[in-house]
């Protein structure tokens, strides 16, 4: 066979074919001991000072227990049904009050952004929590690149809505597509990232492949998944759960142990993976990220702006 200089991605052996993850992890651990410099996984990411040193949940827990209503309301539904979602090709429409609007291909969107591993706590509004080793880049980097016009005050996000691949959207459990929003200064905070992977690999589909928001000081549902559109606006954009039930879900939805959900206490949380007899742990203001984000809400009554 002749050498072909025109090899493309189509010629690459799929990663799953030459390595499976368990072997990889075991192998990487063994190699680390020998000091071999094998790239550990698909995504190279620098460590971050924003990472927690708490033990991350396993990939099985993170992808096997989550909410992604587009694939069903059960916690196991995303793992069961998200496989059918096409994530390649993927483009994100960026519009509204930006200098360079357009439809950006995923590769183009990530280009020039430095990937970091951010091990964040995730606190769901349903009073459970996890620790997730996200891989992503700061949202502010993308916003700076597309150029935010001075009149913009908010960022709106939209999830993919494709009923033929998303069985959960065939019923009106919540209005589709799923939408979320941040105030511009929240979006520019260095904690706010667009994540494209976790555990060193591309984002698993149940967790919002191929690109999702992660805002760790807010309840999980603010961290919108599988983003297809980002719009800069002057007015506060709609947020799905806030539309569905404004009494229970505010626009801000910052983690706050002092403001209960009308149907349950937010004072404590169950760390997923603790098992049958694990004690609940106290929930922290802003999910423990107050030193970075409390300033965003100076002078605001957080029991009113919940």
């Amino acid at each position: 066979m002749r050498f072909r200089p025109d090899l493309g991605w189509a010629d690459v052996t799929p990663r799953a074919d030459f390595m499976n993850r368990r072997q990889l992890i075991g192998g990487a651990a063994a190699l680390a001991g020998l000091g071999a410099g094998l790239p550990a996984a698909a995504l190279d990411a620098a460590p971050s000072r924003y990472s927690t040193d708490e033990a991350p949940n396993t990939l099985e827990q993170i992808s096997g227990y989550c909410n992604f209503y587009e694939f069903g309301t059960g916690k196991e539904d995303p793992a069961r049904h998200a496989g059918q979602m096409t994530v390649d090709p993927w483009s994100v429409k960026i519009d509204g009050l930006v200098e360079r609007p357009g439809s950006y291909d995923l590769a183009d969107l990530v280009k020039g952004q430095s990937l970091e591993e951010r091990i964040y706590r995730l606190r769901c509004v349903e009073a459970w929590s996890m620790v997730v080793p996200w891989i992503g880049f700061e949202l502010s980097g993308l916003l700076t690149r597309v150029g935010v016009k001075p009149s913009a005050k908010y960022v709106a996000f939209e999830t993919l809505y494709r009923p033929e691949e998303m069985p959960g959207t065939r019923r009106p459990v919540i209005p589709w597509p799923y939408v979320e929003g941040l105030r511009l200064d929240e979006a520019m905070n260095p904690l706010a990232i667009l994540a494209t992977g976790l555990y060193g690999e591309e984002m698993p589909k149940p967790n919002g492949a191929p690109i999702r928001l992660v805002v760790p000081w807010k309840y999980g549902f603010k961290s919108i998944k599988s983003i297809v559109r980002i719009t800069l606006t002057e007015e506060q954009p709609p947020a799905t759960w806030n539309i569905v039930n404004p009494r229970e879900y505010g626009f801000y939805s910052n983690v706050n142990p002092e403001v209960d959900h009308p149907r349950w206490s937010q004072a404590s949380e169950r760390r997923v993976g603790g098992g049958f007899f694990a004690a609940k742990i106290p929930t922290r203001m802003f999910n423990g990220y107050g030193e970075y984000v409390a300033g965003l809400y100076d002078g605001m009554d957080l029991s009113r702006n919940f």
Binding site: E60, Q61, G64, Y65, K75, E76, W128, R270, V272, G273, G275, F276, F277
Partner: peptide, 15 residues
């Protein structure tokens, strides 16, 4: 099943 971790990721909720 709950006590031995055989019932999903969140055994309390499941049971």
């Amino acid at each position: 099943q709950g006590a031995t971790g055989r019932i999903g990721i969140e055994p309390v909720e499941a049971v």
